[in-house]
Computed example of a mutant assay.
Amino acid sequence: MTIGINCGHTASGPGYGAVGIIKESEHTRLVGQALMGLLRSAGVAVVDCTIDSSDTQNEYLAAAVALANRQDLDWFISIHFNASKTHAGHGVEVYTYEGRQYQDALDVCANLEGLGFANRGVKAGSGLYVIRKTKAKSMLIEVCFCDNQEDVSLYQGIGVQGIAGAIYKGIYKEVVLPSVQFPAAEKHDPTREEFIEFVGNIAQRDWIERRLVLPSVVTAQAIKESGFGTSELAVNANALFGIKQNGWTGRVYVKDAVEQNVDGSYRTDKNVLWRAYDSWEQSILDHNTYLSERKIGNQTEPNWKNVIGCGDYILAVQYLQNAQLPYATSKTYEESLIRDYIEKYNLAQYDPVGDEMAPDGYLWVVQAGAYKSLDNAKVLQRGLEKMGVISLIKKYAEQM
């Protein structure tokens, strides 16, 4: 899938955009660049069809179309901001060839309407040069009116990333997250018991191999955050944990986030980017890596360093929430994770049992093999040495 993005108008001179409360040319680039970033993060090939300068308006339009037509695009999208003589116009509208009601165009309008803009609909744009002349399926998006105070205030309150996310989400179903092919070993309609066993076994294996996050804690978080694998993120993005993009270079999924404020009230953050995975197992392993490596701001050590290697689930959960940046904004996360999940479902069964230390003067010895022939014993010893394992050959009575 290849998409061409045109940040509407030139940056200066002929072809410069409307100037209202905000400058169209500046903000088409802000939104367009953010949109390109989202698409590239999702693995979509993006062609930047933006023209920053030109001798004439017509030359600018022709140059943008020429860039688009050199490529075999699936979509050509031009970002604009509207303006009206009375400064009373407001809302979002999208132009397509002959006003074709493409579902993606309708969804872009609906998503921006969901952010508070008036939905002016999908309209005929055959008279617009970039719509008429591009070979690819095209849409020109008028995000809002740059000379209307209500629209501008709403736009600034949402932010560039939120606007780009709404557009991205309008087209993502076609170009960003196609139906994921689950690995055959993963069952994605498990019972609760099957889900616990699936996550618990992977978390247990990872603890043995990397000793990062205690299996009971990992499993409890997966249950709580994904609803036993039934959440939107788990189903559409293979994500069992709500981990935001935060430097992730893989695929992303866009959805709103409900967060709890310091005063206990709740807010909804629009069009948040979440990590998306190829499988639930990848999600579990990345969750553990994320906790072991994530640094916040100027931190020199990982934010959740005390969680890593902690063998007590009560302490590990406390460390999650008592870090400089708590893992979850919910005030009851710590108590709920322990009471409602780890202890209710006996998730400590996946945690390591207490280690038994040999008494003073003794060591635990691993015996690799026993032979009648000394030569055969030496063959094994040489093989072990090639693997970096030091071994001793001793003679014992057979009854041992």
Rank of each mutant, 00 (worst) to 15 (best):
E193G: 01
W274T: 12
H287N: 02
Y319Q: 08
I3R: 11
Y371V: 05
V379Q: 06
S12G: 04
Y333T: 14
E197K: 07
S12E: 03
G297L: 11
Y266A: 12
Y168C: 15
I342R: 07
I131Y: 15
Y95W: 04
Q381V: 09
G242Q: 02
D72G: 11
P14W: 03
E335A: 14
G165F: 02
I163T: 04
Y97F: 11
E398H: 02
L140S: 00
P326A: 03
T230K: 12
I51M: 00
H9S: 00
S226P: 06
G200D: 12
L273M: 09
A348M: 10
V160F: 04
V353S: 05
M139Y: 00
V213Y: 00
L73R: 06
F145T: 03
S53F: 14
E385K: 10
E186T: 08
V180N: 15
A42I: 09
N288F: 12
Y60I: 01
V379T: 06
L380F: 02
E194V: 14
T191K: 13
P178V: 11
V365Q: 05
R251Y: 09
E343Q: 15
T289E: 03
A105F: 13
L233M: 14
G99W: 14
A203Q: 11
F228C: 02
Y341D: 07
Q103M: 11
P352W: 05
V218R: 10
T219H: 13
W304K: 06
V19L: 04
E259Y: 11
Q57I: 08
I158W: 06
N298S: 13
E334G: 11
A185P: 03
I163G: 02
Q149N: 13
M387H: 07
Y102V: 00
D351Q: 07
